[in-house]
Nucleic acid binder design. Sequence first.
DNA 1: CAGTGAGCGAGCTTCCGCTTGACTT
Length: 937
Amino acid sequence: MAAKKIKALVIVESPAKARKISGYLGKDYHVMASMGHIRDLPANASEIPAQIKKEKKSWASLGVNTEEDFDPLYVIPKTKKKLVKELKEALKNSEQLILATDEDREGESIGWHLTEVLKPKVPVKRMVFSEITKKAILEAIENPRELDLDLVAAQETRRVLDRLYGYTLSPLLWKKIARGLSAGRVQSVAVRVIVLRELERLAFRSGTYWDLKAVLGAKTGNQTSFDSQLITVDGKRLATGKDFDESTGKLKEGSKVLLLKEEEAKKIQADLLKKDWTVTKVEKKAQKRNPSAPFTTSTLQQEANRKLGMTARDTMRVAQRLYEDGLITYMRTDSVNLSGEAVTAARKCVEGRYGKDYLHPTVRQFSSKSKNAQEAHEAIRPAGTEMKTAEELNLTGQQNRLYSMIWKRTVATQMAEARLTFQSVTITSGNCEFRSTGKHVDFPGFFRAYVEGNDDPEAALDDQESALPPLNENDQISCKELDAIIHETKPPARYTEASIVRKLEAEGVGRPSTYASIIGTIQDRGYVRKAGSQLIPTFTALAVSRLLEEHFPNLVDLNFTAKMEQTLDDIATGDAERLPYLNKFYSGAEGISEQVKKHEETIDPRKACTLNIDGIEASVRVGRYGPYFEKKKGEENLTASIPDSIAPADLSNDLAEKLIEEKQKGPQSLGMHPEEGLPVFVMNGPFGPYIQLGEVVEDGPKPKRVGIPKNYDYSELTLNQALSLLTLPRRIGHHPVTNKVVNAGIGRFGPYVLHDKVYKSFGKEGTFEHEGKVYDVLNVDMDTAVEMLKQAKRRSAPTPIREIGEHPEDKEMVAIFDGRYGPYVKHGKINATIPKDHEVESVTMDEAVVWLEAKAAKMGTKKTTKKKAAKKKAAKKKAAKKKTTKKAAAKKTPEKKAAKKKAPAKKKAAKKTAKKTAEKSTEKTTTKKTAEKTEKE
DNA sequence: CAGTGAGCGAGCTTCCGCTTGACTT
């Protein structure tokens, strides 16, 4: 027996790493992956052991025994049970256990948990390495060390603190604001940062100013024209955007600049057109630029977002593939360090590709600027020693683009600095001075490979040459054009995925593995929505942020995490203890536990949900069905919903008054339908404005309704337009090719054209442009419809490869189809993949039924974990329904009620999709997705 | 697909960091 044993079981965190290391270590070693943490605090009620639950301890739901030294209750989650069993099996046949998890706080902890769970009876060693090369691995295995229990304690402190923070503050929010909300050390700060920016925008007052822009050229010699900007008048500097006070829209107090109004600007313009123009000053300044550090997770996400328009989540998904294929190094890292192997490869590549002149004379190394970098991995770079390009690797699509970016950035790090000359020329005319600036790239250096992107799309890239023609003092200039231009100061920009990741990293909040999910969490909880690339906070976020700021200011302070990290560092070095720190945080009069209890009694939930905004008479309230305005008028309490598309910074008193008035007036009849004799109403529902013909009658059929396409302003809709919309769907004619009928109508997802069961939606604005003309559902002609239908993806109904027969229970057909993931059996809505060891031809009905049942059961369990956001929205809807269904129960026939109950899942999904479609209507990149979704339904 | 702003009330919602499958047909 003993002879058959292998030398050691080596455990790392990721399978890709395991494969690579296994190759270096050979057959004597068995390398396995832990897939991250194998144990954790119970995530929810279902993970708390029954025993503990029964005891009804006050701390049971925390999973941390706050009565006894904050002893954590660790459980192995369901998803990890199988893996743990496999690890135990493997350990039985090993003479040694080697923990080769990452060399950081979490990695050390994973190693410790492994020993706790596997309870090895053989010697245990800890090995660490910072690059995965054969040499480094063999060296590491010869020089093992012990587990660092102080580092493990630091991780546990972090874990427990985050749990105490999140699981004591969140319930307070459920009680005071809305169920399902959450607070956390990271997310609450992220939300707060976004909210503060929105409040700045809300308080922002725009100012305007005028200036002059000239197009000039020398009178002799090189007469290339160049732009010039008015800088001073009578020696007084002209006002620009930064001279304005953001809260008033006026010039900052005491500023000595000149603010031009329209008449003055135009007067100067007229004046100067008659005057001579002379160069009075020429300045040149040389500057050098150095390449940026190689990518970390955070900078990769930022650049991919700016340059490739990818979300943080997309970026990580694509990077994961590149990593698994062995093309890049690990993608979750906070280190800017390049290994010796990488530097050598990059330098060789630079020399070969661009020549010696482009090589930086010495090796360039970078040091991390991020606040609490743990640097367990390298920077993100092309793997190996070859520095192959994306083309050489035959990459395509997003993989190609992301890899190329990584390649360029890495190679650029070893390239020579770029040398630039900046020119600044002053041109005088009359009592005015103009300035032109230019830039000349003397030597491009690393620009040849890589230039960092910018958040501001208008900002010129560094490598762009924008040199002025040669100019000397006293040169005579001719003015070719002179324009007076109005400028408006703009509010500070909203955060994007890129800028919020940058901000969080700069503050040391969050980790490489979490940046992408933070953005997901704050959206799932309904704190933030995305409009294009902007992250817009909801009114809920404003209310939650205010509550936390008011009552727990230190917890949502930007420095909270940084301070925590200092303590954790002390714990890791053995200079501090976990217990006093956690005690101070949780227990005692100032501890979070007491504070929450106190505020539970004192905070008035009505007030917590009410936002009073300067300059707006009505209050904004966060209600169960979304935000609404509320205003007292005598005895009456007037309310009006705030549409989803309205951002907090868009609020104004006029808007509030308008919405309240509209609501109070009730549905407005545009007039009578000439044939039906019924009034035509414009109404506003959860899916936006719609037209209704006649009123709701008890026991009668539902009145005809039709949504108003986005290209019509519902508040200015005419009776004729409404009547036209009510006639939909309309027949456009017969398709010239198939001779089948083509119709135009409005469905759940808005206006569409329909031909032979193929739908094509009008664009996000409800219009379609064809040969320079804009069409919508009312005026679309056959020519345009044919063009639109060409763009529709035809989805022919899939044909089964084999029909097995009728299902024994409901007699519905069970058949085999060929899908993207191999053949599968289909019965109704349930699809189950056929196991690999079965032939399509030999599948029996009995087998198929077993697979289908297994799949159905699986789907049942999945729902609870996955569709969190959907669940929340659904719950809201359900709650909303309650009253109406109860009241309306009498009106509805029993069959109708039953039908409603039967298909709730489908309804929810459809609603969600519809909502998304509406929400994302402004987003360029998702139009395609929306179209796809539309078709699926 | 369509209007709400409130309660009868069991048990539950929730954190941050590590990681990949499962899975989309």
